[in-house]
Simulated scan of single mutants.
Amino acid sequence: MPAGGDRGTDRSPDGVNRSLVIERPGEHCLIQGELPVPGPGEVLVRVAAAGVCMSDREVYDGHRDAAYVSYPVIPGHEWSGTIEAVGEGVNPTLVGRKTVAEGFRACGVCARCRCGETSLCTGGYAETGFTEPGAFADWLTVPARLVHLLDDAADLRAAALLEPAAVIAAAVRAGRPAPGERIAVVGAGTLGLLAVQLLAACSPAELTVIDPRTERGEPARQFGATESLPPGAAEAAAQGRFDLVVETAGAPTTAASSCLLARRGGRVVLTGMFAPGATGIDPVHLSLSQLEIRSVFGASSSAWSDAVRAFGLGLLDPAPLITHEFPLERFDEAIALVGGADPKTGKVLLRP
């Protein structure tokens, strides 16, 4: 088991639900309550694993935009589990199936949803783990319409990373990679290494990963990258070279620098979450280079389907990205690792 893998205590008894609650920034507690009951159109899921990401750290630190979090909150938007019960109107054959589910509670009826752009829903923001109870718990309920079923043999540890994989699948859709193109991925964290796997499946002529942490180069190459470069070397050797640049780092300068890496008429997709004050994109360069720039926040239903399909086919293997696993009782250790400077820290999981 990876570092931090001592799960400490067994899962709570049936009928009891432990939940990790962030009551307000910097304050959390583990509570016990009754088992959630799935309402009409819902399923009850027993959580197998839940990923801890920078968005969770932002919630804990109080740095997430107030419009996108509601305290007190049970975090956990990256997760996998098994359906144990269904509510009224839900097919009972779902019971026992391994699953993941979309986080956005899209309305399904607005113009954007009807066009398939569920991540752009205008019906109001609601998302599992931010405004709705998430998966840092033994159990959770989610709308059955958001469920994506997995194969019976699926690795639920790895499947917990299908939420960030869906974000990358949305970026790949937006970027439209074609065989034989030169592609760069900026950032070699979880999103970046998932991007390498999906983009490698598109048969690029070159797939370059750019990250200041040279230790990330080897896993990037194992996943299909042809080379890895630190930012300075990339700017010197590859400026204006790439047909497609997928930015995943969210660092203060990476939106602007990613545009400089793209060739004239190239495409840039931004997936990183940028903080206020990040370096802006030069409008003169943008205009003269005729770049196509897209941004991604979350994932549509179709992108989720792409990620789950790639996972089932073996084109996407998130398991090697997992470096630490903790029980709910050790949340404070897990959250401390996320956003730290240790390049050996990859994906951190909570295992209820």
Rank of each mutant, 00 (worst) to 15 (best):
V147D: 01
F130K: 01
G175F: 00
L162G: 04
P177C: 03
G124P: 03
A171L: 09
C121R: 05
R114T: 15
T141R: 08
F130E: 01
V186M: 12
A174R: 08
A188G: 09
G189W: 13
L146Y: 06
W139G: 00
G116N: 09
A165L: 11
A137E: 04
V167D: 06
V142C: 09
A188N: 03
T118G: 01
P177V: 01
V172W: 05
I183P: 04
T118N: 03
H148C: 10
G189C: 12
C115H: 13
C115E: 15
L140T: 03
G192T: 03
E127K: 08
C121S: 05
A159T: 04
G175H: 00
E127I: 06
V185D: 05
L140D: 04
A158W: 00
T141H: 00
G123A: 07
V185L: 08
L161R: 02
A188P: 11
G192I: 04
G189R: 12
A160W: 01
A188M: 12
A158K: 11
R173H: 14
I183L: 09
L120E: 12
S119Q: 14
A137D: 04
Y125G: 11
C121N: 12
L120V: 08
L140M: 15
R182M: 13
G180C: 02
A135Q: 06
W139H: 15
V172H: 07
D138A: 08
G123V: 02
R176G: 02
R173N: 01
C115N: 11
A158V: 07
T190C: 14
L149C: 08
A153H: 14
G189Y: 07
P179N: 00
A135N: 12
P179V: 04
L140Y: 02
P143C: 11
L150G: 09
D151Y: 02
L193V: 06
A137Y: 01
A178I: 06
L156A: 11
G180F: 05
A126N: 09
F136W: 01
A166M: 09
D151C: 08
A178R: 15
E181N: 07
D138L: 10
D155Y: 01
D155L: 10
